[in-house]
Amino acid sequence: MAQQVRGVIAPGKGEPVRIETITIPDPGPGEAVVQVQACGVCHTDLHYREGGINDEFPFLLGHEAAGIVESVGAGVTEVAPGDFVILNWRAVCGQCRACTRGRPWYCFNTHNAERKMTLADGTELSPALGIGAFADKTLVAAGQCTKVDPAASPAAAGLLGCGVMAGIGAAINTGNVGRGDSVAVIGCGGVGSAAVLGARLAGAAKIIAIDLDERKLAAASGLGATHTVNAKDTDVAEAVQKLTGGFGADVVIEAVGRPETYKQAFYARDLAGTVVLVGVPTPEMKLELPLLDVFGRGGSLKSSWYGDCLPSRDFPMLIDLYLQGRLDLDAFVSETIPLDGVEAAFEKMHHGDVLRSVVVL
């Protein structure tokens, strides 16, 4: 039977978010209703509010979430009512050319719930990244639910649903950081700081955190950075080369998503090194590089989609590391807030005051 719950809605481009009553339908085949326990406030939610993703308003915001499966539709076998799950926005299909070649983390046919959540008047909502978890409950495809150990804190676990996984995965999965490598991370917000943590997990010997904000550099140091560079008054490529014997880093992770910082990453890497772009550019941005430099320096230029993660593989492993005390997810939770605190959290995020504000329900 359909339920009515609270949800945070972005009604129109640039308008402040507000709490509305939303209707959650019963789950259809392959779907699940999840009682949300916690959901991080991510830059992507702000992009939705500003119309930077698309114009399919109104949006039901929120996607970095963990909670309890309440009910499932026909044919669902991967999760059951009562399971503690992290929500993800790339439910793999298992049948596309990437999946059938054994590369499901590149799935080209990810899917979401087909039934629609609505406002009380019947207006259909567009859930952020197919999730919409700034709500007491949400409807998702069952494949968007990954069962993990319920001993984990929902506020920390939910962050694997987007930003933290993107950063850790950029280092471990996309960048293939190995023991003894040197790594530079440009941009130390939530994703970049997670990339620092991922590089440490992978055994990097030198991890150079780069940002304009000393607060973020201090946080990156706490997560495993061995050196910091304030880019405000320093040539980034020169600084990284100086810290790596004049060569450059083996892996440089660009977590900003701007042409200027991508060029810094390109020239801060060693010959035959790897650049990983995990920061998300805007549509109008263009990159210009001498083609001879691209050829002559060799190596790899990669883009990291969601940290090239496979939720069913990576989420349980990372939660196990968290529960063993080897992965400090709690360090990313700057504050916990109620459902009506999202608009204020956007402002704090804009000013760089937090790594993550987390809505706790």
Rank of each mutant, 00 (worst) to 15 (best):
Met1Ile: 11
Ala10Lys: 01
Gly14Pro: 10
Pro16Thr: 12
Pro16Ala: 10
Arg18Asn: 06
Gly30Phe: 01
Ala32Met: 09
Val33Gly: 02
Val33Cys: 08
Gln35Cys: 11
Gln37Lys: 15
Ala38Arg: 08
Thr44Trp: 00
Leu46Asn: 13
Tyr48Pro: 05
Glu56Asn: 15
Glu56Cys: 13
Pro58Ser: 08
Glu64Met: 04
Ala66Cys: 09
Val69Phe: 03
Ser71Pro: 12
Gly73Thr: 06
Val76Tyr: 01
Glu78Ile: 10
Glu78Ala: 12
Gly82Ser: 09
Asp83Arg: 01
Phe84Val: 03
Val85Asn: 08
Ile86Leu: 05
Arg90Lys: 13
Arg90Ser: 09
Gly94Asp: 01
Gly94Asn: 04
Arg97Tyr: 15
Cys99Asp: 01
Arg101Thr: 14
Gly102Ile: 02
Trp105Asp: 13
Cys107Lys: 05
Ala113Leu: 04
Arg115Val: 01
Gly122Cys: 10
Glu124Leu: 10
Leu129Tyr: 03
Asp136Pro: 07
Asp136Arg: 06
Asp136Ile: 02
Thr138Val: 09
Gly143Lys: 08
Thr146Met: 06
Asp149Arg: 04
Asp149Ala: 04
Ala151His: 10
Ser153Phe: 01
Pro154Val: 04
Ala157Ser: 03
Gly161Lys: 00
Cys162Glu: 00
Gly169Cys: 00
Ile172Tyr: 05
Thr174Met: 02
Val177Gln: 00
Val191Gly: 08
Val191Lys: 05
Val196Cys: 11
Leu201Pro: 06
Gly203Trp: 12
Gly203Tyr: 12
Ala205Asn: 11
Ile208Asn: 03
Gly224Ile: 05
Ala225Asn: 03
Ala225Tyr: 03
Thr226Ile: 01
Thr228Lys: 06
Thr228Gly: 01
Val240His: 00
Leu243Met: 07
Asp250Ala: 12
Arg258Ile: 11
Glu260Tyr: 08
Thr274Tyr: 05
Val275His: 02
Leu277Glu: 14
Val280Ile: 13
Pro281Glu: 11
Thr282Glu: 15
Thr282Gly: 14
Leu289Gly: 04
Leu291Arg: 13
Leu292Gln: 14
Ser304Tyr: 07
Leu310His: 15
Tyr322Trp: 10
Asp328Tyr: 07
Val333Met: 01
Leu339Cys: 08
Ala344Arg: 09
Met349Phe: 14
Met349Tyr: 13
Gly352His: 10
Gly352Val: 11
Asp353Leu: 13
Leu355Ala: 13
Ser357Met: 07
